[in-house]
Amino acid sequence: MLNADPVLALLSRALDAATLRQTVHATNVANADTEGYRRLEVIFSAEIQRLNAEGPALDSSQALQWAQAEPEIVESAESKVRLDQEMAQMAENAVRYQALLGAIERTLGTLRFAAKEGREG
């Protein structure tokens, strides 16, 4: 249903990515004392590089291509888990997640407004 609207499609993909980031941060924190564990991180590799080469999105169909980008979990360059950095990044990601929720809320509000033919707020 969220894919019916291009804006909602983009926002829900971004929300998925933020969820994945939260999962990976939690995994890093949980495994801080695990033998041989190497820190993980979420990246958008191949797809984003291709889209970046094409330049900024100019219309909604181009913007939707960004929604196709698949996040990947890979080992980060810094293999040791540092709790303070992990927590800081988790807090940042949580703020982003809540911003996305707000954006989804407002988009849904617009759709609701349209569905009610602008009769009430």
Partner: peptide, 11 residues
């Protein structure tokens, strides 16, 4: 090799 979300390690 990418790791899928389902196989994230539990200590």
């Amino acid at each position: 090799t990418p790791i899928t979300a389902g196989q994230l390690p539990r200590p």
